[in-house]
């Protein structure tokens, strides 16, 4: 067991190193300098253009270490992340990358965790029921609309919801994390309710788009499992339909889905970027989006590193949880 844990930890470190290396070099291909870009935007928007601009840019470059050779920057970067020092944002200097992440992360985690888990539960239940021959027909058809909706791209789903539910029917706010003009106060219930209210449409957009995927794969799995001998034998034993469904059928059909859940959690960051931009939520997807636009390298590195660590940790965690679900792979 200890050997396994050490092996997995080494794997974790390797994955993090590989991901941070790849993500270090990709933005550098563009050859753009974040400091210069920043002053360029300032110049466009505010006409701010000091005479000694080049000197200022050069001094900032020295300050951020951007004038060093690329390889030296890479080793500096590796050594600082190994000390959990993610650096500062070039664009929002002097705010640190960690601060930016910490401010935005809770928004993303809550929304995505809730929708992913909800989608997993709803999707798998619908799929399992859709494949269960003894379920009432009306219940089995519940899966169909979700399977259809699954084909709608997330971007379009958000727009459609915003237009119909938010704009036409005025049933939900059109965006933002909370009503404009409200001062955040986490001790006030009305404020928390306001926040939840603003999360409903983005949550729905994520949910509607992802439930169908689980439904489809679960239905396929369910069709295989219901023909298994142990499901038949359970019926021969005189067990009731609910027990067979829960303990013999669902329990087995869920096994591959559990792995799918860990994989899906990795993919949610992509949905976060789209949905958060669309609904104006201050989450990590927005931070990443803004950083990519302004070549804010360290923020990109920080966010990607964070996500990599989160996903890789989830994977390793899943590997330890999976044997609890399936006794056949309790090898050590």
């Amino acid at each position: 067991m200890i050997k396994l844990i050490i092996r997995r930890l080494l794997f974790l470190i390797t994955v993090i190193w590989a991901a941070s290396t790849i993500v270090f070099f990709i933005p550098r291909i563009s050859q753009k300098n974040p400091v210069r870009e920043r002053f360029a935007t300032l110049a466009i928007s505010g006409g701010f253009s000091p005479k000694d601009l080049e000197v200022i840019i050069a001094s900032y470059n020295t300050k951020f270490g951007l004038d060093k050779p690329l390889f030296e920057q890479y080793t500096d970067y590796l050594s600082s992340i190994s000390r959990f020092d993610l650096g500062v944002s070039y664009n929002k200097y002097p705010r640190t990358v960690l601060e930016l992440i910490m401010d935005s992360l809770p928004w993303t985690i809550v929304l995505l965790l809730v929708t992913t888990v909800l989608s997993f539960v709803i999707g798998n239940l619908l799929g399992a029921i859709a494949a269960w021959p003894r379920a009432p027909r009306w219940l089995r058809t519940f899966a169909t609309p979700f399977i259809l909706l699954q084909g709608v791209p997330p971007v379009l789903m958000g727009v459609l919801l915003l237009f119909f539910i938010g704009f036409k029917l005025k049933l939900a706010p059109l965006g933002g994390a909370y009503s404009t003009g409200v001062i955040p106060d986490w001790s006030s219930l009305t404020f928390i309710w306001d926040v939840v209210w603003h999360q409903i449409l983005p949550g729905l957009a994520l949910l509607l788009g992802s439930v169908g995927g689980w439904t489809l794969s679960m239905r396929g799995m369910g069709i295989t499992i219901q023909g298994e001998d142990y499901v038949n034998f359970a019926e021969h034993k005189g067990l009731g339909g609910y027990t067979i469904f829960k303990d013999y059928y669902l329990r087995n059909a869920l096994l591959p889905q559990a792995t799918g859940l860990a994989l899906a959690l990795g993919g949610v960051v992509v949905s976060a970027i789209v949905i958060e931009s669309q609904f104006g939520l201050p989450g990590i997807g927005r931070v990443l989006d803004a950083a990519i636009r302004s070549n804010d390298f360290l923020v990109i590195y920080g966010v990607v590193l964070f996500v990599t660590i989160a996903v890789a940790t989830l994977m390793v965690l899943m590997e330890f949880i999976y044997p609890l679900l399936d006794p056949r792979i309790r090898n050590e």
Partner: peptide, 30 residues
């Protein structure tokens, strides 16, 4: 009546037991 009056010994014994629960649990639920 199944199992108490008329019982069935399955054909595919290799797969007739639920792989994820203990044998005991499969007897107890019956």
């Amino acid at each position: 009546a199944r199992l108490s009056k008329i019982a069935y010994i399955p054909q595919g014994a290799m797969n007739s037991l639920n792989p994820v629960t203990r044998i005991g649990a499969q007897m107890v639920d019956a």
